[in-house]
């Protein structure tokens, strides 16, 4: 718990409210992208992007079976 001279306890993020908010906005955006990616590989049955048809589903077919996601 000793604080050496010239060494901040936490140097990774500025103790600044706006930096914290910005970081959490980035994290939230990343979470949304992650959820969309999970939906795309494990849940899509050809409706995510109409043009892709069931290509996405068929490409992820083996991964869906392996990880236990419901498949046709």
């Amino acid at each position: 718990m000793s604080l050496h001279a010239g060494q901040h306890p936490s140097t990774t993020a500025a103790p600044d409210a706006t930096t914290g908010t910005r970081d959490w906005l980035i994290a939230s955006a990343a979470a949304i992208v992650a959820l969309i990616a999970l939906y795309a590989v494990f849940f899509d049955n050809g409706s995510l992007i109409a043009a892709t048809g069931s290509y996405l589903h068929e490409f992820a077919h083996d991964g869906r079976h392996l990880f236990g996601a419901p498949c046709h």
Partner: peptide
């Protein structure tokens, strides 16, 4: 596709 799916799964 299995390897790609697994990679996407891991990243997410």
């Amino acid at each position: 596709g299995l390897v790609v799916t697994s990679l996407v799964f891991g990243l997410a």
